[in-house]
Amino acid sequence: MGRWFGIIMGALLVAILAWSGWWHVGSTAQQDAVEGWLAERRAEGWQAEAEVSVAGYPNRFDMTAEGLRLSDPEAGWAWAAPTFRTYMLSYQPHRVIAEWPGKHRISVPGETVEIEARQLRASARFVPGTRLELTQGILEMHDLEMVSGLGWKAGIANGQLSLRASEEERGRENAYDGVLDIEGLLPPDAWRAALGERLARDLPERVEEAKIVATAVFRRPLDRLAVEAGSLRPETVWLRPSVVTWGPLSIAASGRLEVDEAGVPEGTIDLKVSNWKRVLEAAVAAGAVPGDLAGALKAGLQLMSNLTSDGKGLEAPLRFAGGNVFLGPIPLGEAPRF
């Protein structure tokens, strides 16, 4: 009995030592990979600094980056975070959970925004390998607050962004399905002010629902190299039935756009708008529609509304053509660039 006990204990000790060795090798490799990536960015002219450590023995690789500073002078953005963490099982390193605790600072030319949340957490699955090609990802936000250096504030009570490699666009590479679902969006005060006093008074404090469902085909896979190069422009965007509801205002949309190399969209988005007269009033007050066009636009939309509904709702195509955007036959101006 004693001999067998010794054999079992010896085998157990060997297994523990082997697993400990594997964990040490894996944790060291992860830390070296993160620090190596930061060094590569610095060599390209970025600011890329952080104190990196890995814990989680025996079953996880828990990476913590303290005092993270990332900025790309060429692209003009910067990200500063007190702490950034990732978690992965040591036997499934292609599945990652990430957390952003504390107050983060994101800067773009002319503006800096501080972001803090009760929970800001993501999970992702990648194709095994160093490129980190995304196959599925979910970002969750709870009680998120944004404060801009320009004086505005905004927030989200609950939100989720999910992304996965698409099964719909068969035969086309680099297609991804995405859903953005937001509840309790607190818009900046400037949004309400831009809507005009009468309309702003009738709207609740928060946008009740904003749900955007889309499939996008990109020019390259969503991976580490695409992020580093800043080449995330889509070539096709298929907007599934999506809706935004804010008190008496509601907009539903669906359609498809093709985007050229310069980011100019071509295609049609079908809109369904409730209380469209109030939406037009808000657009004029916000300056999105020139005041001298408001009368003609209202008459044209009234005709379209009478043809498609009871006169209160509106169904109309939003067309993108020749670098411009049209609501039905009515020109609205230059199309936004992707």
Rank of each mutant, 00 (worst) to 15 (best):
M1C: 11
M1Q: 11
G2R: 15
R3H: 14
I7V: 15
I7S: 09
I7R: 12
G10W: 08
A11S: 12
V14D: 05
A15Q: 08
L17D: 02
G21H: 06
G21P: 03
W23F: 05
W23Q: 04
H24S: 15
G26F: 06
A29G: 09
V34I: 15
A39I: 10
A39F: 10
R42H: 06
E44A: 15
Q47W: 00
A50L: 05
V52Y: 03
V54G: 02
V54D: 00
V54M: 01
F61M: 13
E66F: 06
E66V: 11
L68T: 06
R69V: 11
R69P: 00
L70N: 03
D72R: 07
E74I: 12
W77V: 05
W79I: 06
A80L: 11
F84Q: 10
R85I: 09
S90Q: 07
Q92S: 12
P93M: 04
H94S: 13
H94E: 13
I97C: 02
A98P: 05
W100V: 08
K103A: 14
K103D: 12
H104Q: 15
V113K: 07
A122M: 13
S123E: 15
R131C: 00
L132K: 09
Q136A: 15
Q136W: 12
L139F: 08
L139S: 02
E140S: 11
E140C: 00
M141F: 09
D143V: 03
L144G: 00
M146K: 05
L150Q: 11
G151M: 06
A154S: 14
I156R: 00
N158Q: 15
R164K: 12
E168C: 01
R170T: 15
N174G: 01
V179R: 10
G184L: 01
L185G: 01
L186V: 10
P188V: 02
A194C: 01
E197H: 07
E197P: 02
R198V: 11
R198M: 04
A200K: 03
D202Y: 03
E208F: 03
E209K: 12
A216W: 06
V217H: 06
D223W: 05
L225S: 14
A229I: 05
R240H: 14
T245H: 10
P248L: 07
I251G: 00
I251A: 09
R256T: 11
L257H: 02
D260W: 03
E261M: 10
V264N: 07
T268G: 05
I269A: 07
W276T: 00
R278Q: 13
R278W: 11
V279G: 00
A282P: 01
A282G: 14
A282K: 00
A285Q: 08
A285F: 02
A285I: 02
G287L: 08
G291H: 10
D292K: 08
L293W: 10
L293D: 10
K298T: 15
A299H: 04
Q302S: 15
L303T: 13
L303V: 14
D310W: 05
K312P: 00
K312R: 15
G313D: 11
L314Y: 08
E315H: 09
A316W: 05
A316Y: 09
F320P: 01
G322Y: 01
V325G: 01
V325E: 06
F326N: 09
G328C: 08
R337P: 04
R337W: 04
